[in-house]
Design a binder for these strands. Structure first.
Lengths: 328, 328
DNA sequence: GTGAAAGCGCTAACAA
DNA sequence: TTGTTAGCGCTTTCAC
């Protein structure tokens, strides 16, 4: 078994409390002599404080939960790094919980994290509406990332990108480049200010009529892009495609290439996220960058500032950025 | 504050011990009546056992550490999912720790995980040799994944793919397709049975002389592929490229396209890993599939079987698989 | 069948 | 400046 506070105390001929104080830097009232002796013995014995015991005692485990749909979706690993890097700077750890966009798994994972006494949760909600009030009302600090939600409970933080505006911009770019018959392929995720709204508003602004035959919504994956493109090409003419994320754009690119449709000459394509590989596709994908790492980092920072110093949680919008490459 | 065992006990008019027994299913000697009453109250009060307290008491936290270089590297998210899915099936959680291939961070993270009393660690070692004996000798169960290591300590499990043989096969494929001037681009990672060995042995087997001018080793990333290809093209003629992973292959593809070299007509390219996007590159990348998810799942399973039932740790090799697409 | 006692490793509050 | 007491929420042993 590993070395405990008591072991150190005994070895040093002092009480456990004194050792605790020294180890935690509440040194002010400890004699230089005692402190030095304890520090020496701590090092000698290789004492590492037991964070579990400490957590139980002080009711703070220095652990964050990261609740997300699926870490293998290319957007989230960067978010995860943002969270972990920030957390570790404050001595916090991160336990990762995938939900597969499933409400029930979400509930179970929340229960799991609660039983683990995590001090807060960074939360990317599942696509389908789930029972989040249970979480929000529990008093456990939560910061929502990425997928915007309207929340009554304002004891919940939020870090997001204005995707509606982002898609408005991406649609507008296609329009500016001469597209008039613009398709929209995205996930089927209904929120008030969703990507779809941005697409509509940009068309409207340009006086282009919305054609439902050019709209396809399913999931944020390659399959949706590929199949959506097939479907739309089968029933409508197009000269541009606005994609809800880059995975969808990959599917679109492939469907177009399969039909020998030239990009961007015949059809222009724009994605969303700017995942790492987007710049290496052919043609390199024009897209809207979302600061994934930064989102994770900001969320973790907000959460920890709240946990440690009681700073209030808040809502913050991060900037997106048009990344123009050769697909438009 | 949340509901505790005591609260339930008081409400039920029994002792905490009895509640504990019921909650944990050590029911055998509890009357049907008491059991039913307790179960009802548990539900009623929404009691969730405190896993931290339990962990401290029984010295098992039901937590695994996942120590890896960088979750944003496209190979690892799948491994992570494999670990998490398996872990959760056994009621275990996963705390993710990135090391950035840095020995010092590795050491710190191990310390962190130890202080958290994780029951075991799934470990992808840093590229540079680090001080792992500290970890292996600590008695904490460890299963190494992906990057093979020669270990004296045999209290350490290992799940790996025979990358040497994998690269031998991939090199051989190029040879079979008529390549004779084959470049090799990979990370600069020296282990006895490394990818480089596989490249050499395949050449040798075919009676092709090894030309150091066609070898470039740096990192497992796009940049290495891109720059490596430039360098090699600047000093040698080639008709094929064997890549250490798919990220490198992406860089290679781009460097070749930039020079208007046709793939696969003039130069054939083969990758390693089969990351999700490889099939969507142009041309779709031929590569060697590594069962990332399976590796994570097997590692977690081995670890948990060891923790829970004392099953010994072992070494296991998983099969790779040639995935032939259009880049050869 | 059930519960009392003890203690996991730690720290807050208070006492000396 | 240091130590004693008590207890975080739980389970193990053993007595009843």
């Amino acid at each position: 078994m590993s070395v405990t506070l008591k072991d150190v105390a005994k070895q040093a001929g002092v009480s456990a409390v004194t050792v605790s104080k020294v180890v935690n830097g509440n040194d002010q009232h400890i004699s230089q002599e005692t402190r030095a002796k304890i520090q020496k013995i701590v090092k000698q014995m290789g004492y590492v404080p037991n964070a579990v015991a400490k957590g139980l005692k002080v009711k703070r485990t220095n652990m964050l939960g990261f609740l997300l749909p699926d870490i293998s979706n290319s957007f989230f690993p960067d978010v995860a790094r943002g969270i972990e890097d920030t957390a570790k700077r404050y001595g916090f750890g991160v336990v990762m919980c995938n939900t597969d966009d499933d409400a029930q798994q979400e509930t179970e994972q929340i229960r799991f994290l609660t039983s683990r006494m995590v001090d807060g949760i960074v939360f990317v909600r599942a696509l389908k509406r789930s029972n989040m009030d249970q979480l929000f009302d529990s008093g456990l600090p939560v910061v929502i990332v990425d997928r915007e939600i309207e929340i009554k409970n304002d004891g919940v933080g939020q870090i997001f990108v204005d995707t509606r505006r982002g898609i408005h911009e991406s649609t507008k770019l296609l329009i500016d480049r001469g597209c008039r018959k613009i398709a929209f392929i995205s996930a089927n995720y209904s929120a008030k200010y969703d990507r779809y709204q941005g697409y509509c508003s940009a068309l409207e602004e340009a006086g282009i009529a919305l054609d439902p035959l050019r709209v396809y919504q399913d999931h944020y994956d390659v399959k949706t892009g590929y199949e959506g493109m097939q479907v739309i090409l089968g029933r409508s003419q197009i000269d541009g495609v606005v994609c809800g994320n880059d995975m969808i754009a990959v599917g679109v690119l492939n469907a177009l290439k399969e039909r020998k449709i030239e990009i961007p000459q015949q059809v222009k394509v724009i994605g969303f996220d700017d995942i790492y590989l987007s710049r290496y596709l052919s043609p390199p994908l024009t897209t809207v960058y979302q600061p994934a790492y930064q989102m994770g980092a900001s969320a973790a920072k907000m959460l920890i500032d709240h946990i440690l110093y009681g700073n209030p949680l808040y809502k913050k919008s991060l900037d997106f950025e048009l990344r123009i490459r050769e697909s438009v």
